[in-house]
């Protein structure tokens, strides 16, 4: 995990100490550790001379900029129509069972968070899930278990 100040400075160098650096900074923090804490948001706000509330408001607008604790691997199962029709419910049930958590929850070891998200652009190969940035299309319950097992082993 990188120090947040490092991320902030790196992105400011790239995008300037301007508001347009906000998304790249937040995205980088999330890429690094999957969610942004209160202290980190306050730091970002200060670095860009923005209001902390404003930064909070911006972060919460975006589904992928989580401000609540998430696991090391965030699993997002597509819940939109094509994946719904091709069996996302079953995938979620399977994952809930495998991970021992409910949708929206994080495993006690902070390794996995299980979420739903909207259409991910793989409708012809549903059901599909993202684990962090990695895509897993054409899922079956068996495939889903196998994939998650790999991550468990990591």
């Amino acid at each position: 995990m990188t120090d947040v100040n490092l991320i902030i400075n790196e992105q400011i160098e790239k995008y300037g100490r301007e508001r347009q650096a906000l998304m790249p900074i937040l995205q980088k923090i999330v890429a690094d550790k999957n969610y942004i804490t209160e202290d980190e948001l306050a730091l970002v706000a200060e670095a860009l001379d923005l209001s902390a509330a404003d930064v909070y408001g911006t972060a919460t607008f975006y589904t992928f900029l989580d401000v609540v604790p998430r696991g090391k691997y965030v699993i997002r199962v597509c819940k939109t129509i094509s994946c719904h029709m091709s069996g996302k419910d079953e995938i979620i049930k399977t994952l809930e069972k495998t991970l021992g958590i409910k949708l929206g929850e994080t495993t006690p070891d902070r390794k996995f968070t299980l979420l739903q998200a909207n259409c991910m652009g793989w409708c012809h190969k549903g059901p599909v899930m993202l684990i962090n940035d990695e895509v897993y299309p054409e899922l079956t319950p068996e495939k889903a278990i196998a994939i998650v097992q790999e991550y468990i082993a990591k």
Partner: peptide, 11 residues
């Protein structure tokens, strides 16, 4: 940004 459900051609 291709977010329209059912669209995946831009990808």
């Amino acid at each position: 940004d291709e977010g329209e459900p059912g669209t995946f051609k831009d990808r």
